[in-house]
Design a binder for these strands. Structure first.
Lengths: 219, 219
DNA sequence: TTATATAATTAGATAAGACTAATTATATAA
DNA sequence: TTATATAATTAGTCTTATCTAATTATATAA
């Protein structure tokens, strides 16, 4: 059994390892977790001793099989609890992330599988993130952002990158949710702002940063 | 917001405060929590500083209004989660206590109420313990034990005192659950063992300790 | 009342996980 | 290549919540 901190580091490292090609450094981890690089170095040593990660200055941090297994399980629990909170307890989109951040650490061998079954084996969480299966397989995750699209393209909102409540509240206000149809009408060359039409309605302009946090699917 | 330890102390003190007439001492708390009296003394000081308890050597430890409010909420969450685990996730009677011990510490203002509603406002948890209401009121709890009864009396199992899995597994083996009917046939004077009939079936003999952990109701 | 057992308390140590400040490496720009 | 900025690391400190060992209080029995 691992501590809360250890689990949070594993999760952060797992998240960074999903961004392909990027070396995972103490600085990178400290940015994700918002803590001091010195603390990260300590924890890297500890996790390496426990054989959950390998650390090599050249290659950066890599999860071991054990480490990845644990990380995936935490992510699985996080996303399943998010589905539970939204569907069963009636929370809003933007309220569930922080609670799931605590629930993901509840320890019991059969909990994830029972929750999965109770929720009827959802494939994606309310933010569109894939929920790892019991066997560790992870459903396809989305990588094309609204900002990546060519002018004129229509798409379906498949997921969101940022799960902060400020971002999600903004989406609620714009009437954007998972499965909403968006058409990219124009990219403003000056600052890469995006002129879009949401669900066939009037034009709205959003920032590049906004567009990079919306993951989309073809229609 | 209070730490995990603080919450566990509050809960222990609340539990001891339910045993009427008993002064709550550092030793008493240390027995419940299984830790060192020196640690308890430290924590008593801390909780008193935070105005969650009052401590007076003569009167022992007393929860303040604030402290009791918090303790009751933790107990409410614990018992609601137990109902959830049993009814929705299909856990056994003896598996739920330890998981609820973790779940009770999840922090969110509306969580207990939402869970309560989702579970359709249960009054008792799977061990027969009353679930505190949102307003802090606690339904009647049972206090007469099987060992208290007179020979010949029939009763209904209303709750159990011990929630350890060893005890609960023993009950499962004996085919005893909440609402099971038991008749006390005879008390053995030598060691206060109890000869009982479970659900109208053949006689079984159980220990005094056993009988003291079964809370019953008249029929 | 005095002796003894039990309880309460204090003092000091430890472990985890965070921090700051200082130092050493490494990468980037002039 | 050298200067400079950024990153990594080390050393030392802090807080929380534990512990053990020693001491002081209190209750109980002789």
């Amino acid at each position: 059994m691992y501590t809360l901190s250890e689990e949070n580091y594993l999760k952060a490292i797992y998240r960074l390892s999903q961004e392909k090609g990027q070396k995972i450094t103490p600085k990178g981890i400290s940015d994700v977790l918002g803590n001091n690089p010195a603390s990260v170095v300590d924890m890297i040593r500890k996790l390496a001793e426990k054989q959950l990660i390998d650390y090599d200055k050249k290659k950066g941090v890599r999860l071991t099989i054990q480490g990845e297994k644990n990380a995936v399980l935490i992510v699985r629990k996080h996303r399943l609890w998010e589905v539970f909170l939204l569907e069963k307890l009636g929370y809003q989109w933007d309220e569930i992330h922080n609670i799931a951040e605590e629930l993901e650490h509840i320890k019991d061998d059969t909990l994830a599988d029972r929750l999965d079954k109770f929720l009827e084996f959802p494939e994606y969480d309310p933010h569109g993130d894939p929920i790892p299966k019991a066997n560790g397989k992870v459903p396809k995750s989305y990588s094309v952002t609204l900002a990546n699209l060519k002018e004129g393209t229509r798409c379906r909102v498949a997921a969101v990158r940022d799960t902060s409540s400020t971002f999600l509240q903004y989406l609620l206000k714009l009437d954007i949710g998972i499965n909403t149809t968006i058409q990219l009408i124009e990219k403003i060359p000056f600052d890469s702002s995006l002129v879009i039409s949401i669900g066939g309605k009037d034009k709205t302009t959003v920032s590049q940063k906004f567009g990079e946090n919306i993951l989309v699917d073809g229609i």
